[in-house]
């Protein structure tokens, strides 16, 4: 009997926590959505004066399309570059033992953890001299600083659980290095790569301060545009831009949820 009561209590408290969790997670998106359809939404109304002004602005003003394109372009290139540079590095860290590995590991992880304000401020002078300031190239380079280590740390755990024997087996069976890589290595680590890429994309996608310092106003990614509208109090357009901004993250979330369930790394 006592056990039954305890179980009932546990179920109830779990249910409560789950309901609170559900509300806490999803309610934040409600006002954003509502604002995007408002002309005016003043206290104390729970329903706004409806208008498509914000969405019209989104679909007709070239600055939104330009921003979106820039963000997609930059984040995609950063992700691909990080993957190309990060894959061998992660393999080295995940599968090899060598002197100084601890130090390298620490060094590689630092840029993903340390606030990069100092780095961006410091390197800006150099970028100006090299003509990289206010250019997409410059922004891509500065995004690499937090994204690449993030990619490496994600991939490293994939390699740590990786058994190189399957590669050896393939070689024994007559496959050369390239075929081994393409037909054995890649498929095995593909889920891990996908998750790492998706999250790395989001890290680059979300950057604000770094893009602002290096890219200035010419490289207007979506976060910069979003900030401008929020700062000026235009919550309607801000809300609409926010929804456009969050879409890729949502796509990534739904797309990768099957991979995420088993993944231990963030």
């Amino acid at each position: 009997m006592r056990n039954q009561n305890i179980n009932k209590q546990r179920h109830l408290s779990r249910k409560t926590i789950l309901i609170l969790l559900f509300i806490w997670t999803f309610v934040p998106f409600i006002p954003i959505l509502i604002w995007s359809f408002s002309l005016r939404w003043n206290y104390p109304s729970l329903i706004p004066e409806f208008s498509l002004r914000a969405w019209k602005y989104i679909f007709t003003q070239k600055e939104i399309i330009t921003s979106l394109t820039k963000s997609i372009l930059i984040s995609s290139i950063v992700t691909v570059l990080s993957l190309l540079i990060g894959l061998p590095a992660a393999r080295a860290l995940g599968m090899y033992h060598f002197k100084g590995k601890k130090l390298v590991s620490l060094l590689v992880s630092l840029p993903a953890i340390v606030p990069l304000l100092a780095v961006a401020m410091g390197i800006q002078v150099v970028f100006i001299k090299l003509g990289l300031s206010n250019s997409i190239t410059g922004v891509i380079l500065i995004h690499l600083v937090p994204v690449m280590p993030y990619m490496i740390m994600n991939l490293q755990s994939v390699f740590e659980g990786y058994n190189p024997e399957i590669e050896q087996q393939a070689r024994v069976l007559g496959a050369n290095a390239l075929i081994t890589f393409c037909k054995v290595t890649i498929p095995t680590i593909l889920p891990g790569i996908i998750v790492a890429c998706l999250f790395s994309f989001v890290v680059s996608w979300s950057q604000y301060l770094l893009t602002l310092i290096i890219g200035g106003a010419t490289t207007k990614t979506l976060p910069l545009l979003l900030f401008a509208f929020l700062n000026s109090g235009d919550y309607a357009i801000g809300g609409a831009v926010c929804i456009v901004f969050v879409l890729p993250a949502l796509i990534i979330l739904f797309g990768s949820s099957k991979y995420l369930a088993g993944s231990k790394t963030m």
């Binding site: 190309l84 540079i85 990060g86 061998p88 590095a89 393999r91 080295a92 860290l93 090899y96 060598f98 590995k101 390298v104 060094l107 590689v108 630092l110 840029p111 990069l116 100092a118 780095v119 961006a120 401020m121 410091g122 390197i123 002078v125 150099v126 380079l141 500065i142 690499l144 600083v145 690449m148 280590p149 490496i152």
Partner: peptide, 27 residues
């Protein structure tokens, strides 16, 4: 071998990350 595999990543970290910090420190 592992050092070669790490080389591109380390270059980025040394030149951009550490470099940026150094320039910041100097300024």
């Amino acid at each position: 071998r592992p050092w070669l595999m790490l080389l591109p990543a380390l270059l980025i970290i040394v030149f951009l990350f550490l470099g940026g910090l150094v320039f910041c420190l100097v300024q």
